[in-house]
Design a protein around this nucleic acid. Structure first.
Lengths: 109, 109
DNA sequence: TTGTTTCATTGCAATATTACGATAATAATT
DNA sequence: AATTATTATCGTAATATTGCAATGAAACAA
């Protein structure tokens, strides 16, 4: 098959999985960490930062954008990418809530 | 190719990506949320909870275990799975730190 | 207009993932 | 020993992902 059965899971489960899947690759983690490090927005110098060819970086950026992790704004002939605060807040509160739930319960096994 | 160039990224970047990749599937999110919901550890009734066949669930459990998200303890002929607190704490602090960094900086674009 | 810069898209090959039926393996039960 | 319960593994098919060379598109500069 190879086809995820998304229709059997809740909207939130799919949303969470989509966001985390987008971050589930070291190159995309590196891109996000780079975007976090540079104070202002950047665009194509992500290519200079990573050991990957330009089309590969472009594809990773597309996936991050589709998932909602980053935003891209056109500025002349360059494109300015930046992190989407909302998405990261969503993930952060997801794990925050999860941990408070865990701490309420006894450890098992 | 289809082969991730992990050797070009840092150990932490690879670790983070591995953890998030394991959670990047709605079935595995559902498994984790189920493990969070049931007070004590469970084993094979995850199969009854999800709309997936037993081998598929077993495979997802294996991936979660390999990534370090869950632990499995043998109890007689059953296996008791439970969440690995440490892994979730790692992820939580990763995004916590990221957000505090974001809040320090001005929004772009 | 011609070139330059910047980025996306196409097309392809190699590999990974997802899902399941069938089967095996292990431990308790009868 | 035979049965049952529980879970893992194997094998296979369909699809997705990763990566890059080549090419295209859009904006700017000369």
């Amino acid at each position: 098959m190879g086809l995820t059965k998304s229709e059997f899971f809740t909207e939130n489960q799919n949303k969470t999985a989509t966001l985390l899947k987008a971050l589930g690759h070291p190159a995309r983690i590196a891109i996000v960490e780079y975007l976090l490090r540079v104070k202002t927005c950047i665009c194509g110098d992500i290519v200079n930062e990573l050991p990957l060819a330009q089309p590969t970086v472009s594809q990773h950026l597309k996936e991050l954008k589709n998932a909602g992790i980053i935003k891209g704004n056109i500025e002349g002939n360059a494109i300015c990418y930046c992190l989407d605060e909302g998405a990261l807040e969503y993930i952060n509160s997801y794990f925050g809530n999860m941990l408070t739930e865990i701490y309420k319960k006894s450890t098992c096994c």
